[in-house]
């Protein structure tokens, strides 16, 4: 998938905003939003929040997890753990990017947040690179991907599944002595790209 498409999925995440206007309930296919009351916080999808913010009719509240101390703890955990730690939000990158772009004034210590999130991303990506390399070297057939967000998983496509397919083709050449029943059907993996 394209990063834009993952971002699109991420825009469905809910954030809390404080509108500056009053309005009734809006019925959308994905669900209802509202009613809006000026000054009262309300949960809406990110795309609605961005839209309203661009029209200057709301203030976006900083998500609980997007706090400098919390992020520093997350970063330390990530550095010290061998596997991947759980991220506070499945779409943390998309959310951070959107909020930093459209609502930097609503965030406390925005620059530090930007650096911290980027550091966390870099640590996770380098861990991912080493695990992928290990996966290929060991010629294993599967690996656990707990706690990886969808954007990170997409970063190894199409390289990892296609490489594994080629290894599978070559393994079949080695013949049946490896104990893997070479089945009649070949499953090739599909990667979405544009």
């Amino acid at each position: 998938m394209d990063p834009e498409e993952v971002e699109f999925l991420g825009e469905k995440e809910n954030v809390v905003i404080v509108p500056t206007f009053n309005y009734g309930v809006i019925h959308l296919i994905a669900g209802d939003i509202g009613p809006f009351r000026a000054g009262l916080p309300i949960k809406v999808p990110l795309w609605v929040a961005i839209n309203l913010k661009q029209q200057q009719t709301c203030k976006i509240q900083q998500p609980d997890w997007m706090d400098v101390e919390n992020l520093e703890v997350l970063k330390e955990n990530e550095k010290n753990a061998i596997t991947f730690t759980r991220m506070p939000n499945e779409h943390y990158m998309a959310l951070t990017k959107a909020l930093l772009k459209f609502a930097p004034d609503d965030l406390i210590r925005a620059n530090e947040i930007r650096t911290l999130v980027k550091d966390i991303w870099d640590i996770r990506m380098s861990k991912l690179r080493s695990s992928v390399d290990l996966l290929i070297k060991e010629k294993s057939s599967y690996a656990a991907v707990d706690n990886l967000t969808i954007l990170e998983i997409n970063s190894v496509r199409p390289l990892l599944p296609h490489a594994l397919d080629q290894i599978h083709r070559m393994k079949k050449l080695q013949g049946p002595q490896l104990g893997t029943n070479s089945s009649a059907g070949h499953t090739s993996s599909y990667s979405f790209r544009s």
């Binding site: 390399d133 010629k139 490489a163 070559m170 050449l173 013949g175």
Partner: peptide, 21 residues
């Protein structure tokens, strides 16, 4: 030959990944 192919591919993979990144 088959073993050599797999061995070569898997060992060159790291290099391939580095060039891509």
């Amino acid at each position: 030959v088959a073993d050599t192919l797999i061995h070569a591919f898997t060992n060159r993979f790291r290099q391939l990944m580095d060039v891509i990144d």
